[in-house]
Structures are given as C-alpha cells and as structure tokens.
C-alpha cells in the first residue's frame, strides 16, 4: 500500500565488520581526481534497488562480513542481494533476491555470508545521508567514510505503509531475477587484451591456463592475486596514465593486481589485460582465498555479455514496475512522474 511519504527510523543493532552507505558511485568525478567508487558488485546493488521499486542509483547499505541487524519503527519493504547469506525477519528465514515485507518493530538479521564478500540491503524509499559530489558512496581517503555503526538511527523517507496479501503472510513475487552463481569452486573471469600484453611473452598463455588465488592484501583499491606472472620487457619508463577499473597490472613484485573502483586513477605499471565490464561484479565479490581462472574473449563478446546483463536488469525493472503498479506498492518511477502537490 502506498501512502504519503513518511519518515521511518531504522535502529542499527549490529553493524557487521564494515557496513556503509553505498550506491553506484560518482559520475564525472574522475577528471577531478576522485575515483568513481561505489558498489564493488554493481549488479547486486542495482538488483537490490530495483526489487524495492527504487531507481538503480538509489542509496543502499553495503555490508561486509559478520552480523548486520536492524529494527524499523514502521513497516519497510527491503531486498537483500549479494553473497549467499542467512537473512531472517523476526527469526523467520527470508529470501534473498526478492522483495521482503518487514513489519514495524521486527528484527532483520543478515549473517553468515559465504561464497562472496558483500551484501546489499535496499529499502523502498530514500535513505537519509550526506552526499559527496552527488553520491552517497564512501570516499574515506577524502574524509567521507559513510560507515554505519551500532546504535545509529538511520532515517528512511518512504511511501510504503505495509502490504497485506489475501492468502500469504509473506507475499510471493515471481520475478525474473538474474541471480549470479556464486559457485563454490574456481571462478571464471573474462578478460580482453591490454596495451602491454604483447610485451610480456608468455603472459597470454599463463593467464589462459593457470589458476590464480586472491590474497589477503586485497582491498577496495584492488585485488592482489598469487600466481605466475611474466614481467614485460623493453618498455622503458611508463609515465603515469589513466587506468580503468579491471586493469590487470604487474607491479615490480611477482603478483597480479586487478584494479577496483577505488583505484588510484593513474599509474605507471604495465597492463597485461582488462577484465570485461560484465565480469567486474564478480570480481567485486572475490574474497581472499578465492581461486580464479581467466578466459580471453574478443571485445565484441565482452560487449555482448554486458549488453545481455543490462538487458536482464531492464526486464526486471519493467516487471517490478508493472507488479508494483498492479498491487499498488510505491515505485520511484511513479513518484518521479507525479506532479508536486500544490
């Protein structure tokens, strides 16, 4: 049921190892020297927001490890995505990758994440938080940590006011949700050529057939991987240049770095490959110890996979919009279109 927008308080009971406000990151900030940042797993963050009727770019909460729990003081509509985890509402198991109706005063717990690094929790409506350069994404280095702590009271502006289903206490939405595999074994990551691939003889074959392991030195700046590398030869000094997310750098030591969304924007290390845009969300979920193999693909294949990923998100968006319209749940697209009250 949709009503006039009201403010709901969310009491944070447990904050996990690291929980922050998050969104898809900054736009047009990198020419100012500020990395785009944002959800490392953009797919899961997008789906969480879509499932609660928000725009993909809405502010959500990213949790990493441990137990995160909260209690709303009024009904809220939520969705939890990302790494497989145990989600409960008042002790009852609740599904991930689905909209979940939470009654006022219920305790919601997200715990035991496994097979991946991050969970995304979205709420129908708008979470109150500061923005830096238009985004709620943390930029800790510049003094914008966005961390959520135990005991904190968050505020949510939402038009959701509970939802009653005639037959089921927990409504069953049948939505075409693209859920990533999070397979327990080795992950396969698609890559395309880099500018220095040719200068490192043998790196193409190594990346194609050997297994690499994410190490504990990894962070939001980049994943560091153990595995065989070849140092490019005869390049001279590479002057600092822009590096995209997903660049495979070989530093002076024997390791491989895959740059993440909080990379330093320029670097002088040779780049021997790039992860495809479609494979970045999985890289954003890789934990220390995760094993991965790489598969060279053509640029056309890379673009096609990304197109398919985006198509599935658009299909889901359409279905959620029509479903929410049919059962009269509040949806961001409707609210945006509605003229302001006189």
């Amino acid at each position: 049921m949709a009503t006039a927008e009201q403010t709901v308080g969310l009491k944070i009971r447990e904050a996990g190892w690291l929980s922050t406000f998050q969104d898809l990151g900054r736009e047009h900030s990198e020419h100012m020297g500020v990395p785009c940042g944002g959800a490392a797993d953009q797919h899961s963050a997008s789906v969480a927001n879509i499932l609660v009727g928000n725009l993909r770019t809405g502010t959500c909460i990213e949790t990493m490890g441990g137990r995160f729990s909260f209690t709303p003081d009024a009904p809220v509509l939520i969705a939890v995505t990302g790494a497989p985890a145990d989600v409960t509402v008042n002790g009852e198991a609740a599904a991930m990758w689905e909209p979940v109706c939470v009654p006022a005063g219920a305790r919601v717990i997200i715990a035991n994440a496994r097979g991946g690094m991050r969970n995304y929790l979205a709420f129908n409506g708008t979470l109150a938080t500061g923005l830096f350069m238009g985004s709620a994404a943390p930029e800790a280095r510049m003094g914008f940590p966005q961390q959520i702590g135990v005991g904190q009271d968050l505020q949510l502006a939402t038009s959701y006011a509970g939802f009653e289903h005639p037959y089921l206490s927990q409504p069953l939405f049948r939505l075409p949700v693209p859920v990533p595999a999070f397979s327990p074994g080795t992950w396969h990551i698609d890559i395309v050529d880099g500018p220095e691939t040719g200068a490192a003889p043998g790196i193409r074959e190594l990346l194609a057939c050997r297994e690499y392991t994410v190490t504990a030195k990894s962070n939001h700046v980049g994943l560091r991987l153990d595995g065989p590398v070849v140092h490019p030869e005869g390049l001279g000094e590479i002057v600092s240049h822009g590096v995209p997310i997903g660049a495979f750098e070989i530093p002076h030591g024997d390791e491989l770095i895959i740059l993440g969304r909080y990379r330093t924007l320029t670097a002088g290390y040779p780049i021997v490959a790039f992860a495809t845009k479609a494979s970045l969300p999985m890289l954003g979920q890789a934990r220390p110890g995760q094993k991965m193999t790489f598969r060279w693909v053509s640029n056309d294949e890379a673009v096609e996979r990304y197109r398919e990923q985006q198509r599935l998100l658009t299909v889901l968006e359409e279905r959620v919009r029509s479903l929410f319209g049919a059962v009269r749940l509040p949806h961001a697209s409707v609210q945006a279109a509605r003229p302001a009250a006189a």
Partner: peptide
Amino acid sequence: LLDVVAGVDSVLVEFDCL
C-alpha cells in the same frame, strides 16, 4: 562519455560500451 582521466601525456576516456 562517462568520465575522463588525465595522465601526464595522455587522456583516458571512459565510455558506455552499449
């Protein structure tokens, strides 16, 4: 066009490949 990263003697243009 999505963003631009200036290097010492180069410009990286980031774009929407779709």
